[in-house]
Design a protein around this nucleic acid. Structure first.
Lengths: 348, 348
DNA sequence: TGTTAGCACTCACTTAGCATGAGTGCTAAT
DNA sequence: ATTAGCACTCATGCTAAGTGAGTGCTAACA
């Protein structure tokens, strides 16, 4: 029993119909709707074969067939037509570019919003991450009568500011001087490299301002912790409720729970970072509450090792073709915007 | 017809029972469960009166009664017992304090999480906002070969960093010098005050680095825009699905939609900022999709004009007493943590 | 005059039974 | 190899009857 052309046509018809209607597809529907030139009885025989091969299944005896995860897999890998973005969709993507987006988190929010409103699935996006472990700049600034501001920037421009309250605030010159020293001491360092020796040398150097030592070390730790925690933006979670697959509230609830625990998503995005495009169908997902979902992710690159990921979650019955084209379009979009983000300041 | 003691007892019984069971309460239930020393027939008569007065209502003829919004209002204003936090709850709140919380957004996230897990409602919290319009510090730092870093801090320590890419990056001394000048020029300024004159003076001062002018002005604008946009953290949205009130998916969907549009919530929190505690019951809410919900908000203060708000959304049938005690406990908690947030660095 | 027992009535909810229709698998004819 | 025909399955929708929680009303009672 081989997967001949006709079987593939029928499988394709089943998948298309099921994606559209969310109802099990019967042989007669196919015979009427898709002009394959064969009768429903023949289709029935072929469907029986397709089921035996594991590409489709029956929710219950005497109902139509629905695609199995394996069926979707075949579809995604070989059958699916690459869809071009419609004008409307392109325009929508453009509208994100054209706006004056100057802050990365705002860009992330907007991107997630656009993807979910275009696809009607739940979308998420992680910020571009590269060389975070290494310190690029660490500076001390005057803030007010009781505190100073410590600014830490990592190699990939992830940055965090820390307010440090002091008993005695040094004068401006002294603050800058300490800042300079800190910078010389830590520039290029990974956190793990900061050993006893460096710390005690720093303590001596700080002299009467040695009370700065502990908050500085703590700020470094906090920055590195935060840097390791990938920022994730999500949008359109409510879309889940619109799909008949989740009309069972308890299912929707458990998926929501997973989505609220960002760790799971972060892991997922991290794992998919090495692939340009990744499609996980149903049971291919390792997370239990996502066994009925498909997750599609696409990776955007700023440089070889500075990457982020965008993705969507939806029912396995999803419009793979559309989602993939939207994600691809969006990857190009983000890469363009991110490249311009800082350049723009020059001539904008 | 007056609201005598017995009527109040009965109303209280109805509300208590309904909060617990989510089922309409009948006269016989009250007679059996609450020993008021009167028969179900008498209770029926009183209930009839209470309905006429608008405190309770029947979902349909020949069903038990449920409290009306007016009934809840009376309950919240006069009948409700102030509940103390249980040991378990107190412990839970403590667990948030005791952790090393050094970043304000992390504190916000954690607080929202704790509130929603204690109450099982959806919680949200806005960051403390005070004198944001006025610039406290504005500094320029070296970043790398092609860009400099502009740090802007407002009076209430809201801060934002901006990467500015340049054709020619000045040397460190020059960068600091320009930074000093910027700081002198803008310190204490509100954005609106920055007029032509200041700008042209700045341009002259920048001299060969006048390409800095536009990105700086843009960064100022962006910072002020972001400062005005109140940061909001939400948690436990999925809890909504657990309540029978929202077993109708379409209702849940429209509420989700509202919650995802943060603007609505921000407005809501802003409006309630002048009250220490605010309870909006059902139809008292102005937002359509929240007409079946109650919103409880509490305001925390760092100083007279630096405030933020925490709140929860749930079905009108909610445990007002518990929520209020949790929110009050949390307000104290936040105020304490925020006051310590920066001090901590001194001795921690 | 307030309270209570009793009774008729209402209405949501459940269950069972029946009809319907979409769909399958099998068989025999083409 | 294909197809028409037929028996069979099963989800779904509809109706009718039964159940039970609850009310309102009335008449009797303290």
């Amino acid at each position: 029993m081989s997967l001949n052309d006709r079987k593939i046509q029928i499988l394709q018809a089943i998948i298309n119909d099921y994606i559209e209607t969310a109802e099990p597809v019967g042989s007669r529907t196919i015979a009427k709707k898709y002009n394959l030139g064969i009768s429903s009885a023949t289709i029935r025989n072929e469907m029986s074969d397709l089921e035996e091969m594991g590409f489709i299944m029956q929710p219950h005896a005497s109902s139509g067939r629905i695609p199995s995860d394996l069926g979707y897999r075949l579809y995604v890998d070989h059958l699916m037509k690459k869809r071009e973005l419609s004008l409307e969709e392109q325009g929508y993507l453009q509208s994100v570019i054209s706006r004056d987006i100057s802050q990365i988190d705002y860009l992330m929010e907007e991107t997630a919003r656009v993807i979910s409103s275009l696809t009607n699935y739940t979308s998420f996006i992680s910020e571009p991450v590269g060389q975070r472990a290494r310190i690029k700049q660490i500076r001390l600034l005057p803030l007010d009568m009781v505190s100073v501001l410590l600014v830490i920037v990592t190699e990939d421009n992830f940055m965090k500011n820390h307010v440090i309250k002091l008993g005695v605030v040094p004068d401006e010159d002294k603050i800058f001087e300490i800042g300079m020293y800190l910078n010389r001491a830590f520039q290029g360092c990974a956190l793990q490299q900061i050993g006893r020796e460096v710390i005690s040398r720093l303590q001596i150097q700080l002299g009467e301002y040695s009370e700065l030592l502990r908050p500085i070390l703590r700020a470094l730790q906090a920055t590195m912790d935060a840097a390791e925690k990938v920022q994730l933006h999500m949008s359109g979670a409510r879309n889940i409720l619109a799909f008949p697959e989740f009309s069972d509230i308890s299912k929707a609830k458990s998926l929501f729970q997973t989505l609220e625990e960002k760790d799971v998503l972060v892991t997922l995005l991290e794992e998919s970072k090495s692939n340009d495009l990744q499609v996980l169908i149903g049971s291919e997902n390792t997370v239990q509450s996502m066994k009925d979902c498909s997750v599609i992710t696409a990776t955007y690159k700023l440089s070889d090792d500075t990457r982020g990921t965008i993705g969507i979650v939806g029912p396995t019955r999803m419009d793979y073709s559309q989602v993939i084209s939207v994600l691809n379009g969006m990857v190009q979009n983000i890469e363009k915007v991110l490249r311009n983000l800082t350049d723009d300041n020059r001539d904008g």
